[in-house]
Design a protein around this nucleic acid. Structure first.
Lengths: 218, 218
DNA sequence: CCTACCGATCGGTAGG
DNA sequence: CCTACCGATCGGTAGG
């Protein structure tokens, strides 16, 4: 039977089980816990809405006690913003990569690429961030909304020249600005009905969208 | 000075001030108060979401005390359902009228009519009911959702033959089922960005949508 | 990060 | 419909 005295005599290192590897800077619990909160919050915000989710729900999802999220985030709102900002940065990144990786493409091919990437970011596995951004923006402060609007403008900027070119070549008949808004609506609404487990694939979805918008698959 | 006795002697009609017209059954306060709750709730649910709106807010909007909404509705959820159901019944009605009033139309003309009516129901003045239905369905019971799904199916049924005809004549290239989902998305998303006071008119919006979907204005 | 807690607010109800 | 109220839950904090 170990006494309290014996316990204090043991070397500090002995308290850590030998089999457990030392963690590097990048996997420090600090970042991991913060990350766990963001991921859990995204899932809950999407399923139950911002106002329908309690910070206790979020804490539990990350295996914490009820007050602990506030060690990582100043407020529930700050956590919401973190979810949305990470979602938008990820979306802008994926879009940039895709555009950079593709060689010289025709305007219809460019549109196809943008639509395809948009569906991936929106409907890909584990992607709750963008849906939350699309449907919970009401709960942000004006300042936070403005920051996100900047990222959204950056994202939309890639579409403008493509739509412009399609309009000038006669493939896109509608007014360019209104067409962009209607197109984003058609794509974004898919988070309401698309089910990855059944029905169409992302490829078929992309085909249908291209056919609808410019009357051809590419 | 009128005594209590004199009062009981007077004919019942004398109790009501002469200047105030008798109310018909349809404008009884009962219905008016219930209606006021529905209208106020729709506005608040749309602006702040279902979970972000308190029943006290709703009561105040209708000029009532905090507990009074529960005299008219069993629960907050029942009030939400009433908003959505009324919105959908109105939408189905408006659509039926429009279809009935129009003579024999070509398929593109039929599509234009449906799109135009859809925008009116969605974006017309004082129309918070449908936006609430589109964005707060998560807060319904499965049973309520099923009832609404029936009305929605009724609404969508008018579109199916039109899209089918356009597909067969080659004007609509996309798969009909996916096209319908994408089209509703394009239209429904407009509640997020359309501003009646500036920018496009409903007519221009309809033009753009028709041009985008079938490459022509009619 | 946990413990223990606070003031505020919430949906809803009993009784009139 | 109002008054008065209840139990539950909420976002957030102090102190460790």
């Amino acid at each position: 039977m170990q006494t309290a005295l014996a316990s204090t005599r043991a070397a500090p290192a002995a308290k850590r089980p030998r089999g457990r590897p030392r963690k590097t800077l990048d996997e420090r619990d600090d970042g991991n816990r913060r990350r766990a909160l963001i991921v859990g919050a995204a899932r809950l915000f999407r399923r139950k809405g911002f106002d329908g989710t309690s910070t206790r729900d979020i804490a539990a999802a990350a295996g914490m006690q009820s007050g602990s999220p506030f060690y990582h985030f100043r407020s529930k709102q700050a956590l919401l913003f973190a979810v949305m900002e990470e979602g938008m940065r990820h979306a802008v990144e994926r879009q940039s990569e895709a555009v950079a990786a593709a060689g010289a493409l025709s305007a219809p091919e460019q549109l196809r690429l943008l639509v395809r990437k948009h569906f991936e970011v929106l409907l890909g596995p584990g992607n709750d961030f963008i849906p939350v951004m699309l449907y919970e923006a009401r709960s942000l402060t004006p300042r936070q909304r403005a920051t996100l609007a900047g990222l959204q403008a950056q994202y939309e900027a890639a579409w403008q020249p493509v739509l412009q070119a399609l309009h000038q070549s006669g493939r896109l008949k509608a007014d360019v600005k209104l067409a962009r808004l209607l197109i984003f609506g058609a794509l974004n609404w898919s988070v309401q009905w698309f089910d990855r487990r059944k029905g169409a694939t992302l490829e078929q979805l992309t085909d249908a969208a291209l056919a609808l918008f410019i009357g051809e698959k590419q």
